[in-house]
Amino acid sequence: MDEATKQRLWGADHALDAPFVRGFLVALVAILVLVPVVIWVMRVAGKSTPEHQGELWARYRSWLIFIPLMVGPILLGAAWTIAAVALMSLLCYREFARATGMFRHPPISSLVVLGILAVTASVADHWYGLFVAITPLQIGVIAAVAIGADQPKGYIQRVALGMFAFLLFGICFGHLAYFANDSNFRSMLIWLVLCVELNDIFAYTVGKTLGKRKLAPNTSPNKTLAGAIGALVLTTAVAAALGALVFAGTPVAAPLRLIVLGLIVSVTGQLGDLALSSIKRDLGIKDWATTFPGHGGLLDRFNSLLFAAPAVFHYLGYIQGVGLNQAPRIFTGS
């Protein structure tokens, strides 16, 4: 293992090398200090009811837990980042399995978990060939193991749900982890997660202030057309502007390419949210779980990353590649 790889995996002392990361942390701390002041001012000014106050505080406390869990591993190093994404994938799959009833089929459920672990191993090894190979192999394995029970009734549902879950939580989230194989992963991941979260916030606030026409009332009754368009415009602008800092000096740092990148983040972020809402509606549940007050389950928070991560990964891959300047097959290569 060469020195650059070791630094990337465990070199926490280089966490603050990138100016974008430093700027982000300063802004983050400033916001986290300001929010309680704003909530307090709203109370003093009589702008919010006690219930509203309670909800705001619950959300704020949840963010205080979320943010270190999300940002901490990225700052610590690529190894921590990959492990944290793997843990998030497994916990999100757990929520999915309990909501769909997949957890009642231990063989298939175990295969999804093994698939997520295999993806994690290929990402940690920086072995793109294996990362790609797992999907076609997994469909064969799941289809084969599902025969084992010799109960054709419900076969399609078991296999399809198993593969759907694996693609969502193994492959889609696996792309998020794969960013950690780039030397610039700290800036890229913070940028991506930040833009996707801002996309949610923009859609919510624009929708609340300007929204009239519903976007898809049966799927997600609170989303409005104005919110979706507002998020598209604002997120594209912010993602492109911040992207100019993150990707400075690389081929993607051209105005048109940055704008397309921003559009991809906003559209795929909103689609991930809507797709997971559709699944919840189909199942007849409101939240995936009750892990975090004001947020629901982990999946309620991270749904917007599902499609954004692979889309951004492959757009960057098309233009300039991700992780090409880092040694491949760290553990398995000779």
Binding site: R98, A99, T100, G101, F103, R104, G154, Q157, D282, L283, G284, I285, D287, A289, T290
Partner: peptide, 10 residues
């Protein structure tokens, strides 16, 4: 297709 969430969900 029949989806049956865990009875203790929530």
């Amino acid at each position: 297709w029949e989806y049956k969430p865990a009875q203790d969900l929530g």
